[in-house]
Design a protein around this nucleic acid. Structure first.
Lengths: 261, 261
DNA sequence: CAGTGGTCTAGACCACACT
DNA sequence: GTGTGGTCTAGACCACTGC
């Protein structure tokens, strides 16, 4: 039993004693939440080693098996990464294996990005008051400042992605076009190291649209060309929205790949 | 130890004795494969109850915990469904909760399909020799017979999806437009009950295209209208492709929703 | 070698569903 | 009450990593 620990509740007993709304939560879920809090508070930073299962078991006064089950779920959500013989590490977008984890655009021939990394070109980067739709998506007020970033990604010199990115001004204070342009690696890795913001999951809404004049010029396609419109909301810990991204993808030589199960 | 069982290998010992290519596989993975085989052979049919963990543990001569871990993975892949107090059931597309699991098109307003079920209209259903690209996708020879099915789905009387479906002629012998039209519920549920084919996972390739004359007429949109092109390959057990589906989605009032993690 | 995560077991008890 | 899956524990051993 874990009743000796301060923050853990013996749910079965508690639920029986207090009559209403049991809100049953197994021990390992509570442990998961505690670990999540430590991740969120930055006790362990992206890429770092977290304490061993034995250490965490001692800290939370539960068995190793219970900690294991908590970590199993965190690993399934890509929040941590287990490596046998070494330990458990905080997940990061800088990891070579899972780089560009959220980019689903694939070249039609060949699965991997063997066409080399994208050539990136920053078109614009400015600070402004959040328009209503952006504010709603980022859970801000319309008076709050946001950063807007526009860029084009090209594969083998063919402009393929036009993206507008909106970020809350507070957490990303100090982000400039120069800093983005000079950074090697995924944008989300920069967010981790420079601003302490780790993107955990995202939702995308996909539509087919016709290229307007501005988009057509930047992507070097005729006006009216069908493009894939991808609107992404990315979340950090606690389901807090931290990025809105509107992308237009050229899908002549590429496609958006999705796995259903 | 499980060395008393016939088909299970004590991998640690076996790997040490045979020198090359250990091919280590934990016990619970071997159990998972055995259960998978029973599913595939139809020992338990979609929707049916499979034996309890205790029974399976006795059958395979392992502990309940090992069976549990095997079933946990099968449940994570949606191959079986656990229900506390009742048992473990073979997954099915007829299940109310997970109906249309593979359909990612959502109305822009509101998450669920509160706009009612789609109105279905079969345009065509014929038997033919597999064209080269279809044969490749379904792992058939070009001399093999395939069924081709064309249909339009409408939401609130607005034609929204135009789909071509190709199925291998062998497993789906006897499928007719009438049988499809008279069936209530998801097409994949019909495949399960009538042909014993359970779709387990799928891959989709998504592009933006312009409506051609034929598509435009069926979807009642202008020629050139941007449409979402969704090419799906659906697999049954053993990663065997069993369906190729080419869909054109109208994304004015709907969007394709994807969750990234 | 010691330390880590990974597997397997056995037993106890809890939550849930049916009868 | 009985049987199911779900949780929690404790201990043993295996596989991998690095000192």
């Amino acid at each position: 039993m874990a009743t000796t620990s301060s923050s853990l509740t013996d749910t079965a007993t508690a639920a029986n004693e207090a009559g209403a709304a049991p809100a049953f939560s197994p021990l390992y879920q509570q442990i998961k939440v505690l670990i999540l809090q430590s991740l969120q508070e930055g006790e362990w930073k992206p890429g770092e080693l977290i304490p061993s299962e034995m250490d965490l078991a001692a800290r939370f006064r539960v068995s190793q098996g219970t900690v294991r089950k908590a970590i199993d779920e965190l690993a399934a959500d890509n929040l941590v990464m287990r490596r046998q013989g070494k330990g458990t590490f905080v997940g990061t977008h800088a990891e070579q294996q899972v780089q560009y984890r959220f980019l689903r655009l694939m070249p039609d021939s060949g699965d991997t990005h063997n066409e080399g990394p994208a050539e990136r070109q920053i078109i614009d980067c400015k600070r402004l008051r959040a328009p209503a739709d952006i504010a709603r998506a980022l859970a801000l007020r319309t008076s709050d400042a946001v950063l807007q970033l526009r860029r084009v990604l090209a594969f083998q010199s063919v402009p393929t992605i036009l993206e507008d990115v909106w970020l809350p001004g507070g957490p990303f204070k100090g982000l400039t076009a120069d800093r983005l342009a000079s950074y090697r690696g995924p944008m989300y890795a920069l967010f981790e190291t420079e601003f302490g913001v780790r993107m955990v999951r995202a939702e995308e809404k996909i539509r087919a649209v016709a290229a307007d004049a501005a988009s057509a010029e930047l992507l070097k396609v005729p006006v009216g060309e069908p493009l894939l419109s991808v609107e992404r909301t990315a979340y950090t810990y606690n389901d807090q929205p931290m990025e809105l991204r509107r992308g237009l993808y050229r899908t002549c030589k590429h496609h958006y790949k999705n796995e259903l199960s």
